[in-house]
Design a protein around this nucleic acid. Structure first.
Length: 566
RNA sequence: GGGCUAUUGGCGCAGGCAGGUAGCGCAGCAGGCUCUUAACCUGACGGUCGGGGGUUCGAAUCCCUCAUAGCCCGCCA
């Protein structure tokens, strides 16, 4: 193999470590609706899982949900009074913000929303909730180790962070380091772990003193002022992020954890984490795999700021395979712009890839063929069939979903089966078909919204044309009829007669008839008659190819529509 | 102050690690299908690969440098 997929390169490094167990990890704070960006690291791990399982290596994959992280801000869809009340508490200590649901906590609501999509995406992993992890002896031992090694930890942080700061921040950093301890306490009185000052500064309930004989720490709550001593085994202590991460690594012996570029930056938490893991917890730490953000169009997403496009939402618009494909075909260090309006093009690429995999189409190069053969099994959610799975083309679905107001689902289903070349419903059930149609409808609606919000008129028009958005009018606008000329009206009536007189029709015949009527009987440019027909049915001058379109419509409905009173 | 990524025809991108006449998709253009296309088929057009310098017989590719853009970097997470 000349060229290799980036996953293979990382895999080699993984196997060089010669670990008995291969532990893959990912993590996320459930601070709100979790957006699709997190799937990038989850899918990288899931792909490794598949690769390693194929090689009989028995990997384990964990997803750490940082439910004990403090709410430092809330997304805008959370009510103000709720925000005010719970700001500064760990997410697992905050109730579910939505009254109608009965979740255990804020963290569970959003965490479970993410988890519920894994099955559809073909993701397998084990979930570790931070608030439960911190109740375990293992984690509490790590807290103890961290407290004992406070000075050492501080010098590591200093060594890594200081060189990356400018002078002002250097001073700030040195200042906070003076009384710094690696552990925070969740106040027993108000459940808060930090306080957000009016100047937007964050004041954590950092512990003030550690009694290493009794294993008791003292703290003062920055939010309510409560002062107390508390045992390190109380379950109310939490390590600071930069120590929390390596502590988890050392407990689970994590072999590899992908992380967003924010963590992977020089002097960031990954670098300090690895050093702390090695020096304080005595474990070499995971292989660092950095990845760039996944963007929505040209915007970054942010869970806490409420710019979200969730995996659940994605699944309402398109196939999970398409998403896996986007992630796998792109080097993790490059950013991906997920563009809803380009989903048809994604499907085109997927189809091409599938054709190449099944040897129905030639790849341009050997490398392309190799890469596709490698990726395809990692992309599929269901098992791979011997022959290329038949699918209703996206364009057809897009068309079908827009004529639902005049055509029954049954008619469309029959039509779909005939396009697929099936005489029965073996390959695609009616239920599945309904689901596909609904999903495409959702996508069309989404596109309509995107078009509406576009500022550039030219872009707007291009997109409208590219995607062929149309609506069949329930009633004809009277002004349309009034604006038709004599020949157009005559033409419409001739087309109507043609439909009445002919029992069996095909699209070619319809198409040709319209031309013949225009040229021979009316002596007008065919375009004029086409426009009249489109106006009558769609309310605008253009639409899908008329022959196949009219054939699809219910004949009686069509004849009725073509009967116009002048 | 530090870092990552990007800069290749109108748009979106591949190629870059292993240097050897610049590619793909979409749009645009022309023609074809007895035939409006925002259907399909065919064809042609279109780029001095962000600027500059260096290494080389030869650079989109390697090295240096500059520029522009996006994002990230104390505490907290």
């Amino acid at each position: 193999m000349i060229s290799e997929h980036w996953l293979e390169e990382i895999k080699k490094k993984l196997l060089e470590r010669n670990s008995k167990e291969l532990i893959l990890a990912t993590g996320k704070t459930p601070s709100g609706h979790i957006h699709v960006g997190i799937l990038r690291e989850i899918l990288i791990c899931d792909s490794f899982r598949r690769i390693l399982e194929r090689e009989e290596k028995e990997p384990k994959v964990f997803l750490f949900l940082d439910s004990l992280d403090a709410a430092k801000r809330f997304p805008e869809y959370i009510k103000p009074e709720f925000r005010k009340k719970h700001l500064g508490k760990p997410f697992s200590f905050i109730p579910c913000p939505f009254e109608e649901s009965e979740c255990e906590s804020y963290a569970h609501h959003f965490g479970n929303e993410l988890i519920s999509t894994f099955k559809d995406f073909g993701i397998k992993n084990e979930i570790i909730w931070a608030h439960e992890l911190y109740k375990t002896n293992e984690m509490q031992e790590k807290i103890k180790i961290a407290l004992k090694n406070n000075d050492k930890i501080k010098s590591i942080l200093k060594k890594f962070i200081l060189p990356t700061l400018d002078d002002v921040k250097k001073e700030q950093f040195n200042e906070t380091q003076k009384n710094w301890m690696p552990v925070m306490v969740i106040c027993e009185k108000c459940d808060k772990i930090q306080f957000r000052g009016k100047d937007d500064s964050i004041k954590p309930n950092r512990i003030l003193k550690y009694d290493n004989k009794k294993d008791i720490v003292s703290y003062e709550c920055q939010a309510c002022g409560h002062k107390a001593d508390i045992s390190i085994y109380s379950g109310r202590l939490k390590l600071n992020w930069r120590i929390d991460w390596p502590a988890k690594w050392s407990i689970y012996k994590t072999t590899c954890e992908p992380a967003g570029k924010d963590h992977c930056v020089k002097g960031g938490s990954y670098d300090t984490g690895l050093e702390i893991c090695k020096e304080i917890f005595g474990y070499m730490g995971p292989l660092k795999v950095a990845y760039e953000w996944l963007r929505l169009g040209d915007r970054d997403m942010s869970t806490s700021k409420g710019i979200v496009f969730t995996p659940k939402k994605y699944l309402e618009l398109a196939d999970p395979e398409i998403f896996r494909m986007l992630i796998l075909r792109t080097n993790p260090l490059k950013h991906i712009s997920l563009r809803i309006e380009e989903i048809p093009q994604y499907y085109d690429y997927y189809d091409k890839m599938e054709n190449i995999y099944y040897n129905l189409e030639h790849a341009e190069t050997e490398e392309e063929k190799d890469i596709i053969n490698y990726m395809y099994p990692l992309i599929k959610v269901k098992s791979i069939s011997k022959e290329k799975p038949r699918q209703i083309p996206f364009k057809v679905l897009s068309f079908f979903s827009q004529v639902q107001n005049i055509l029954s689902l049954e008619t469309l289903y029959e039509k779909a089966l005939s396009i697929l070349g099936y005489r029965d419903s073996e390959s695609i059930s009616f239920e599945e078909f309904k689901f596909l149609l609904k999903r495409t409808k959702n996508w069309i609606d989404e596109i309509k919204m995107i078009i509406e919000n576009m500022n550039d008129d030219k872009q707007k028009r291009l997109l409208t044309q590219k995607i062929t958005i149309f609506t069949i009018q329930d009633k004809i606008d009277r002004t349309i009829i009034d604006n038709l000329d004599e020949k157009q009206i005559k033409g419409i009536s001739l087309v109507k007669n043609f439909f009445i007189e002919n029992e069996y029709l095909d699209e070619e015949k319809i198409q040709n008839t319209i031309f013949t009527i225009s040229k021979d009987q009316l002596n007008i440019n065919p375009k004029t008659l086409f426009e009249a027909l489109y106006l009558l049915i769609l309310g605008k001058k253009f639409g899908p190819r008329l022959g196949s379109f009219l054939l699809l419509l219910d004949k009686d409905w069509l004849i009725n529509r073509l009967t116009i009173e002048v």
